[in-house]
Design a protein around this nucleic acid. Structure first.
Length: 260
DNA sequence: ATGACCTAACTTTTAGGA
């Protein structure tokens, strides 16, 4: 079972790389973020023809999340319970049944950026993280294999950024943001990548500007958080870095976790 | 080079991203 997440930065602009990724990496489940289109504009036919079921929560111009699955999708939940999303499509969750009757619960998350930090945008980011943490705590009580995957817009630690000083005042790296991340993990979730490696310099995002990709000035902000039942089955994690060098790339690359 | 991008939209400029 391979579960991936990818912030595509407009699914319509990224259709060709998306179909290539589905074919080459062949994830069983793919969480998408930043669709930047309404439900009706999502390239459903192309994705279904590639062998995937689709549930989505789109939005015109901004945000938008989806879950693609080779297996049947059940029990879709849109939005975080009890949170005022202020019209922003940032969370969708689904229960997926697979091969041997097993079940995995998957959340596709597009957490707010939060810049600039002195504005309401940052307050909204922290409120979102609070609501996500409350929901994640409730999910743990189900004692299921759960994967909360997406663009968290948080750089967890110094080893996850090319130049910590350059990001010190950014909403993605402020102490309050990182504290919110730790509160989420401390519930009992496992950061999939950190379960398999302690290496520094493993990034999932490189800015389009200033040759950030060429200079490897990246950050790690796309994460898969695993419930204990999911973490017990984790075998491998891969950041599909090569996608960033392809034609018309997103500024984020896919990352996937493989489970027994 | 204190530079350099990309996307969508009531598009020729702006807002948002990170």
């Amino acid at each position: 079972m391979r579960i991936a997440t990818w912030n595509v930065n407009s699914v319509r602009q990224r259709l060709a790389p998306l179909l290539s990724f589905l074919k080459e990496a062949a994830p069983d489940v793919l969480c998408l973020q930043e669709l930047k289109c309404e439900d009706a504009a999502f390239p459903r036919m192309e994705v279904e023809d590639a062998g995937y079921n689709v549930v989505l929560h789109g939005q015109k111009t901004f945000n938008g999340v989806a879950i693609l699955s080779k297996f049947p999708i059940e029990e879709t939940t849109v939005g975080l319970p009890g949170f005022d999303h202020e019209g922003q499509s940032r969370y969708i969750e689904a229960v997926i049944t697979h091969g041997d009757g097993g079940v995995v619960r998957v959340g596709s998350i597009y957490a707010p950026n939060g810049n600039p930090p002195e504005t309401g945008k940052y307050a909204y980011k922290l409120k979102f993280m609070e609501a996500l943490t409350a929901h994640a705590a409730a999910l743990l009580k189900l004692e299921e294999a759960t994967v909360l995957a997406g663009d968290y817009n948080i750089i967890p630690e110094n080893r996850d950024v090319h130049d910590p000083a350059a990001w010190a005042g950014d909403a993605l790296f402020l102490p309050q943001s990182r504290a919110a991340w730790r509160r989420l993990l401390n519930l009992g979730y496992t950061d999939a990548l950190r379960a398999v490696t302690d290496d520094a310099g493993l990034y999932t995002f490189w800015d389009y500007q200033a040759g950030a990709w060429q200079k490897n000035k990246g950050i790690r902000i796309d994460h898969l958080l695993l419930s204990p039942q999911a973490a017990d089955r984790l075998q491998r994690v891969e950041i599909v870095k090569a996608v960033r060098a392809g034609e018309k790339p997103s500024d984020h690359v896919p990352i996937y976790a493989e489970f027994a």
